[in-house]
Every structure is written in C-alpha cells, then in structure tokens.
Design a protein around this nucleic acid. Structure first.
Length: 101
DNA sequence: CCGCTGACGGCAG
DNA sequence: TCTGCCGCCAGCG
C-alpha cells in the first residue's frame, strides 16, 4: 500500500469523537499538498475495511460532501450523536475542526 | 471570468 | 474475486 495512503488512514483514525477534519487538511497532514481528491477516494473505497470514522471528514467549507442521500443522512446522524450542530448540511469548522499537532 | 476543491468508478495486478 | 491507485477536470462560489 502507498505510504501516503497509510498516512491518510492514520490521520483519519486520529480524529477525536466530536471533531472533524477537511479533505485538504487530511491530505496536508499526510504529507501531500493537493491530495484532497485522493483522500476522498480512500474514504469512498476503504472506510469499512479500515474502520475509518468517515463521518468526521467534511469539505473545505464544512459541508457534508457525500452525494448519496442515505449515506449523507447517516453522516448527519452520526455527527449529531457526537454532539455537533449540523445546519443546512454544514457544520461550523471554527468550532469543531480538529488540528493535529 | 477564475481559483479551489474533490464519498466515482474503472481497471490493473 | 478482491484490493488499492488514479485525472488536468467538472462544479461551485
């Protein structure tokens, strides 16, 4: 497996409950400046197998980027259960963004 | 107009 | 059958 992919998985799994990270943020933390696209692919095809907290990953502006309505609703539900306020399909990043040291 | 961002599905191995 | 890598591009603001 690609080293970048390994890092992305590690970063995503490090996001605390009740916190979120954006695609680009994860990519940067994993060592690649423009890898948001790849992060989204990893989320899409490896979330189950690697037990990733996929619901804690949002777009750059705090929106739930998932197209599939059912999955998007599940994400909203999971975030709600972790105490996040989701309004109009978006959360306040200023309040919930997780920034790894 | 223009920069930034990015939950496919296709396909190689 | 299964796993994981991959675009200079569509779409939004």
């Amino acid at each position: 497996m690609d080293s970048f992919t390994v890092e992305v998985i590690r970063v995503i799994r490090s996001i605390p409950k009740g916190k979120v990270m954006t695609y680009g943020q994860i990519s940067a933390a994993a060592g690649r400046a423009r890898g948001a696209r790849q992060v989204s692919r990893i989320l899409h095809s490896m979330s189950q197998k690697y037990e990733l907290p996929w619901h804690r990953v949002l777009s750059a502006d705090g929106k739930l980027k998932i197209r599939d309505e059912e999955t998007r609703n599940e994400q909203m539900e999971r975030l709600y259960e972790e105490g996040l306020e989701v309004q109009n399909g978006r959360v306040n990043l200023e309040e919930y963004r997780y920034e790894p040291r």
